[in-house]
Each structure stands twice: as C-alpha cells, then as structure tokens.
Amino acid sequence: RSTKSAPTGSDRIPRRSQGWYRDPLDSKVKLRSVTTILSQGMPKEALVFWAGNLTAETALDNLPYLVRASLRPEDRAEAYDWLRRAHTRKKDARADIGSAVHTVIEAHVLGQPIPAELLEDDEIAPYLSHFLRFVEEWQVTFEASEMVIANYREGYAGTLDYLLRSPLISAALKAPADAVFMGDTKTGGELDVKGVYAEAGLQMSAYAHAEIGWLRDGTKVPLPKVHDTGIVLHLRPEGYRPVPVACGDREFAAFLHARDIA
C-alpha cells in the first residue's frame, strides 16, 4: 500500500506539462493551458510570415557561412538545422527578457532589490530601464506576479503575468481609482507599429474569469475582480507604451469558442 503523503505548501500548485495543468491534489483533474488553447484554437497566419521572413533575413545575413556549409555534406545538415531554428532562437531571446521583467516585478511585489546582473546585462538593461520608467511614470503597484489561476468549471488553467493598480491608468480609462487591472508584457514587433495583437485580450479574459489562484505558498485564494480592460505593456529597447486591451465578457465568450475549436 502506498504511504505517499498528500502534497503540501507550494507543491499544491498545479504545474504545466505538455499543454495541461494537473491538480496535485486530484490526479483525475486535467486543466487545459490557456496558451495551448489559443495556439490550437485560433489561426495565426502572421506567425507563418514572421517565421519565413526571419529565416530569409538570417540567411541573407549569413550567406558566406551557408555557402561554405552547402559544399560539405557533413556541414550542410548542421547549417540547415541552424537556419530552420532561427525563429525558435528569437522566441527564446524574448522569453529571457520576459523572465527578467517578471523577476523585477517580483522584486517590487516583495520589496526586494533588483538583481544587479539584470541591470548590467547590455541586452536586457534597456527593456528594464523602460519598464521601471513605466512603473514610476504611471504610479504602478503590483498585486501579484506569475500567479497560477484556474477555472474548473470551464476546464482551463494558466499563469497570468501580473495584476496591477495605477491611479493614472484608472483616470485615463475612467475606472475607479483603486481598480485592479490584468497586465501582460509583450516585447516583439516595433513600438507604435505592431507587437500587440487582439489575442492578448482573449488570453487576459481567460485569466480574468478564473475562479481561483494560488499564492506562492500553495494557498488557494479567490481572484479579485479585475477591470474589463487589461493593460499590455509593449516593451522595446527604444521605449514603451501601455496599450489598453478589452478583456471582458465578450472576449471571454470568444476565448471559450477558441477552446471548443481546440
């Protein structure tokens, strides 16, 4: 007979694996990941063109290497793999920036100093500088960061970027001064041109309509009611812009439709 004890502390938080969140306290419960639902339930034609353009750009920037590799069979396969993974490397780099931003947010939430190695990283530092400027200029405070949330009734779970308050954002959106906003950070595209897409509203609507969330110590808590407009922080090396994105009931209905398609 098994003597394994029930999970305690942070081990009670569902963890994502292969597109699903599994409840450690009930092995029968599987909750579909929000991002997986959106990746499988919505067409993303722009990503196909983005990957193709990035591969072509990478090839043209590295023609001497590719020409040399094409002449040697043992190098050709390696060059092919390197070239076809250009878009993956780009996404990995953005993930590093996103992780650094979340580390800074967590430091704010917990009242801890920002790790010096992040501020000294030549690639990441510009992003963090603009992020800190956003926090100061918009008088932002954070309620949560990287919180796992779930909606058992609708069968999904995910990890929200952050919850924030800002009296200036509230005033701009004519919302109550103490309103809580769903927040997300995007680092792609070009500032004031592209990089923030409507899908962000569906993703944030799923988080906003979650029933519960988990604190870092594994405690299960109800989520606070959030405003039906979320804030996407478009963060680039040259600057930042906060973008209001609808994430209310209408967007949630669209998310559930995407879930059904997925």
Rank of each mutant, 00 (worst) to 15 (best):
E190H: 07
Y162C: 15
H209G: 05
A206F: 02
A206K: 04
G213T: 04
L160D: 09
D184M: 01
G188W: 02
G188R: 05
A172M: 13
G213Y: 00
G189T: 02
S205L: 02
G201P: 01
K220I: 12
P222Y: 09
R216S: 14
K186E: 06
D161I: 08
V180W: 07
E199W: 14
D217L: 02
Y162G: 13
P224H: 09
V196F: 01
G201L: 02
V180C: 13
L168I: 15
D161P: 09
A179H: 01
A208T: 07
G189S: 01
S205N: 01
D217P: 05
L173G: 05
Y162N: 13
G189P: 02
G188I: 04
Y162W: 13
G195P: 04
G201Q: 05
V193I: 13
M182P: 08
L160W: 12
M182H: 10
K174I: 08
L191C: 04
R165D: 09
L202Q: 07
L202Y: 06
V180Q: 06
L163S: 10
K220M: 12
L202R: 02
E199D: 14
A208I: 06
S205C: 04
L215G: 13
E190C: 09
S205T: 09
K174V: 11
G183A: 06
G201K: 02
T185S: 03
G195T: 00
F181I: 03
V221E: 09
M204T: 01
Y197A: 12
V180I: 15
R165K: 13
G189D: 00
M182Q: 14
A172N: 09
A200K: 03
A198I: 08
V221N: 06
M204C: 05
T187D: 00
V193M: 00
A208R: 15
P176L: 10
G188P: 02
I212A: 14
L173P: 03
L202P: 00
I169K: 03
V221T: 12
V221G: 07
Y207F: 12
V221K: 10
D192I: 07
R216N: 14
L173F: 08
G218P: 05
A210D: 02
V221W: 08
K186R: 11
V193F: 00
D192S: 12
P222Q: 07
A206N: 06
G213E: 04
L223D: 07
A200S: 15
H209F: 15
G195D: 00
L160R: 10
F181G: 02
G213W: 01
I169H: 08
D178I: 08
R165L: 13
A200C: 09
A208W: 06
A179E: 07
A206G: 11
A179F: 07
D217K: 05
K174Y: 15
I169C: 07
V193L: 00
G218E: 03
A208L: 11
W214S: 08
V226Y: 06
D184Q: 01
L202C: 05
L164V: 10
H209P: 03
E211W: 03
G195N: 03
G201N: 00
P167V: 08
E199T: 14
L202G: 05
L168T: 15
